[in-house]
Design a protein around this nucleic acid. Structure first.
Lengths: 225, 225
DNA sequence: TAAAATAATATTGTATACACGATTTTAAAT
DNA sequence: ATTTAAAATCGTGTATACAATATTATTTTA
């Protein structure tokens, strides 16, 4: 096993299974658990200081979200992401992000537009400062506002899920030379189209952005082949 | 409570939670449980002759799939579908079915194409015979082959989930005058474009089909307003 | 020594027991 | 009669216990 999990702090009012689920998901996306690694219920439960019951329910959820793979009677394994997976995910995302951008161009509020512009400025500042943690935070906030502006909660959650499925490897893509600035520029273009209420322009900008992101991700995964 | 559930037959090798999950999902989609109805774990467990554990895990899954809504410490309720939900779902489906049709036009095998044509013929025969059960069966098989042909398993499962979320009310849409024949014709057009490997044509046909299905569904839900 | 069979162990699947919180019912007071 | 408070009831949340199965280790046999 790669690393440790911190014990669950049950200060919250939320069900344990939720906390446990987030804890394991976090551990998967931040690399504490490696792809293919086996997750054993008793071990996880002990490390987090809870019983197997909430752990099991959390694992069921993670299975649906695609973070783990369950083989009945055999156990649970951290999902391994393949080239094929990335292709599938970005095939769908190109389509859904295009949809979301078009809807946002029609439905976004002035407040949200202002927030997007502010986040873009912050994004640039953190690139200059080289603060990776903040960059990820601002990027996440940016997409959150964008997808909210589509006014389609299901669309929002489907895209979020697809995004999360590649978070474990997105780090590599972000450290790809020049990719951060490209990302910012592509976001800038997208926001400008949305601000102009140009649906077609926004859709194209979104598609281009996703296709570039996929391309970089692929490059950073298969570096020297 | 509306109706009864049959006890789970554990002839199978699959985990109980899977069987229980399908049983409850079936009961929701076929109307045994009404929207808004409360689902109580002990009661469900007793009716199916199992313990609460697999029932709970099944409910977690159904929550992720959108069939039930859980309020912590309060209970589980059958999800109620609203006009807003339908709008959201079909907004996404128009986009994803378009994608799937385009991919299928590129990737379908001759065998699959043959199957689609055969299913279309059967569809027409069952319309003439007025056999609703068989119509649903053939329709499901048709879409299954189509989405498989897209060669994108995630896309397949996302669309399937969106489809299932409206199954509880799709019955009304299917009994809408003339809709079945329209459906068949639209499928015919789609298959012809796919057979001709015409990606753009297939995409358009798919979009039109979904938009029409949504329109009919809306009509049949708000009949006299 | 290698392969197969059998025993031991570990882990998942399911059931049950207990704890906590919410809701409802009942009683009392205004 | 209505409102409030308290207690009882009911259901979910969590923990633990038991059963079934898969894996590993060991022993036996070729």
């Amino acid at each position: 096993m790669a690393g440790h999990l911190q014990p669950i702090k049950l200060d919250s009012y939320r069900p344990l299974r939720e906390l446990v689920c987030e804890c394991i998901r976090q551990a998967i996306t931040d690399g504490t658990f490696s792809p293919g690694e086996r997750l054993m219920e008793i071990q996880l439960a002990d490390e987090m200081g809870v019983s197997r019951t909430p752990v099991r329910e959390a694992i069921r959820k993670l299975e649906l979200e695609g973070f783990v793979v369950m083989i009945p009677r055999r156990g649970t394994y951290v999902a391994d992401i393949s080239i094929r997976d990335i292709t599938e995910i970005y095939e769908i995302r190109a389509c859904l992000d295009e949809l979301a951008a078009g809807l946002a161009a029609e439905r976004i509020t002035d407040d949200e537009l202002e927030t997007l512009n502010r986040l873009l400025v912050e994004f640039g500042q953190y690139i200059t400062a080289g603060d990776m943690e903040k960059i990820v935070e601002v990027d996440t906030a940016f997409h959150e506002v964008l997808y909210t502006a589509s006014r389609n909660a299901r669309l929002h959650s489907i895209i979020n899920n697809l995004r999360e499925q590649v978070t474990s490897i997105r780090g590599r893509s972000m450290s790809y030379p020049g990719r951060l600035n490209d990302t910012m520029n592509e976001h800038r273009i997208l926001v400008d189209f949305i601000a102009a209420r140009d649906v077609e322009g926004a859709r194209n900008a979104a598609r281009v952005h996703i296709e570039n992101a996929e391309h970089t991700l692929m490059q950073s995964i298969t570096p020297s082949r």
